[in-house]
Lab assay of single mutants.
Amino acid sequence: MPVRRGHVAPQNTFLDTIIRKFEGQSRKFIIANARVENCAVIYCNDGFCELCGYSRAEVMQRPCTCDFLHGPRTQRRAAAQIAQALLGAEERKVEIAFYRKDGSCFLCLVDVVPVKNEDGAVIMFILNFEVVMEKDMVGSPAHDTNHRGPPTSWLAPGRAKTFRLKLPALLALTARESSVRSGGAGGAGAPGAVVVDVDLTPAAPSSESLALDEVTAMDNHVAGLGPAEERRALVGPGSPPRSAPGQLPSPRAHSLNPDASGSSCSLARTRSRESCASVRRASSADDIEAMRAGVLPPPPRHASTGAMHPLRSGLLNSTSDSDLVRYRTISKIPQITLNFVDLKGDPFLASPTSDREIIAPKIKERTHNVTEKVTQVLSLGADVLPEYKLQAPRIHRWTILHYSPFKAVWDWLILLLVIYTAVFTPYSAAFLLKETEEGPPATECGYACQPLAVVDLIVDIMFIVDILINFRTTYVNANEEVVSHPGRIAVHYFKGWFLIDMVAAIPFDLLI
């Protein structure tokens, strides 16, 4: 008679799926529990143990900040960024110097990925580790590398530091407007667009060049630039800015003055950032001319202004700041037409079709709590990747769950009947059967004279019903998954307890 339990259901295979997918890609990662103190490590794979030199037993239950890997060259700011990422709910990448158990130093890129439950609360953290440099290539500990984003994938490793954006290309926007319009339909740009040429040739750093990471940081200074100062900065030398009595002219307006920039070969870094931020506020060169004239017309309804409409929906549905990093990277690809469009465009503009998908598509409701890094690593669709929660398995109709209350009560009843059979069957065979043979035949009273025979008949009927119930009862397979398919249940029961239950259900007393 089957006594099969499996009270692990309803099970959740999400954690096993993450481990299996990460292991298949030869990654070095740990999984931490966000619900406990210090976000203790609950799993670390073999790749991480080989990377740091510690065994799994030495890593388990330690804080996922990996303070046991810190050393003299470990930056405090990087460690603080990892700790801050564990307090938030967004994906974050941090470069930090770690030390192995043998004392060797290596520069590592740590990717902190939160995993949320159905309520939107962070319950786990996945920390992925990628070695960037070994100890002989690690720089000085005073050099802070965590304020910069990861290198873009479309640049060669040897040319990542030679990417320079020439400031004269930004200063000569109005001069290039006529050349853009003359391109017409034969050019790649839309009317009114501004073409910015980027020099990728390796050259020595000069005062006129600005690194790509500095251009990325310009967006942080746009908020500090007032509207009046932006307007004066875009007017140009024809209309000098008016300053109040006793007030000095704005240095932001002076930063885009061609006369002032041409007199000296070098520009201050602050002026460069502010000038680029001011130019980015204009949607095209037409807006710059309109600002000089004193009238700013409404933005025209053409394809170039609607190019950012799908980007707005993608940004609203993005799951991490990696989408913004990807957008900034692609927006700086050289030799393309940049349409400086305000994100607050007309909502009635139709979304044009684009061959290049900048932001990841909208994630469906079932995966809105899973970050983009987890979705990318697992390579699963929205119909396959579940949320991290207890999910009731989908069972067929008329199927009994093996952990249901009805099955528990039924098993206790069958257990009592088995005990009765084990006690009274030998007793009936030894004593009652002998008395029946010696006594007179009682054929007239039937079952009324033999109450134990009636009980034995009921017990046999219950055993037959138990066999039928076992054909529709779920079970737990070797992978700790609840199986509810009727065919698989029948095959599993035939290979197991079916023969024993059938022999126990045969009414031998009635056959004798």
Rank of each mutant, 00 (worst) to 15 (best):
P2N: 06
P2C: 01
H7V: 07
H7A: 08
A9F: 14
A9V: 12
D16V: 09
T17N: 15
F22E: 13
G24R: 07
R27T: 13
F29A: 01
N33V: 05
R35A: 06
R35Y: 12
V36K: 15
V36T: 13
C39H: 14
A40K: 08
V41Q: 01
I42V: 12
Y43G: 01
Y43P: 01
G47R: 08
F48Q: 01
G53I: 01
M60N: 03
M60I: 15
Q61P: 01
C64K: 01
C66Y: 01
L69M: 13
L69W: 01
G71H: 01
P72N: 03
R73Y: 15
Q75K: 10
R76G: 13
Q81S: 14
I82S: 01
I82W: 01
A83P: 15
Q84L: 06
R92N: 15
Y99F: 01
K101E: 01
K101W: 01
S104E: 14
S104I: 06
C105D: 10
L107A: 14
V110P: 01
D111T: 14
V113P: 01
P114M: 01
K116E: 06
N117Q: 13
N117A: 14
E118D: 11
E118K: 04
D119M: 15
M124L: 05
F125S: 05
L127K: 01
L127N: 01
N128M: 06
N128E: 13
E130Q: 15
K135M: 05
D136S: 14
M137G: 15
M137N: 15
P141D: 15
A142I: 09
H143D: 08
H147Q: 03
G149E: 10
G149I: 06
P150G: 15
P150Y: 07
P151D: 14
T152N: 03
S153E: 07
S153L: 06
W154M: 15
L155Q: 05
T162P: 15
T162H: 15
L165C: 11
L165R: 09
L167T: 15
L167Q: 15
P168W: 01
A169E: 09
L170M: 11
L171V: 10
R176Q: 08
R176G: 05
E177Q: 12
S179R: 11
S179N: 09
S182I: 06
G184M: 11
G186N: 07
G187L: 06
A190G: 09
A190Q: 15
A190M: 11
V196Q: 01
P202H: 05
A203C: 10
L210H: 05
A211H: 15
E214F: 15
V215E: 15
T216H: 06
D219E: 06
A223L: 15
A223I: 13
L225E: 14
L225K: 05
P227T: 06
P227Y: 08
P237F: 07
P237W: 04
P241N: 15
A244M: 11
Q247A: 11
S250E: 05
S250T: 07
S255W: 04
P258F: 08
G262Y: 15
S264A: 14
C265E: 07
L267M: 07
R269E: 15
E274L: 14
C276Y: 03
R280P: 09
R280V: 12
A282R: 11
A282L: 12
S283P: 07
D286T: 06
G294C: 09
V295H: 08
L296N: 06
G306H: 14
A307D: 14
M308V: 12
H309L: 07
L311T: 14
G314L: 07
L316C: 05
N317T: 08
S318V: 08
S318C: 12
T319I: 11
S320D: 15
D321Q: 11
D323N: 13
R326I: 04
Y327K: 07
T329Q: 15
I330H: 08
I330M: 14
S331I: 01
K332Y: 04
Q335I: 01
I336S: 15
T337N: 14
T337E: 15
L338Q: 12
V341M: 07
V341C: 13
D342Q: 05
L343P: 12
L343M: 12
G345Y: 06
D346P: 14
P347G: 13
P347S: 05
L349F: 15
A350F: 10
S351N: 15
P352T: 03
T353Q: 13
E357W: 06
I358E: 07
I359E: 05
K364Q: 09
H368Q: 07
K373I: 10
V374K: 03
T375E: 06
Q376Y: 11
Q376P: 03
S379E: 03
S379C: 05
L380Y: 03
G381W: 11
V384A: 04
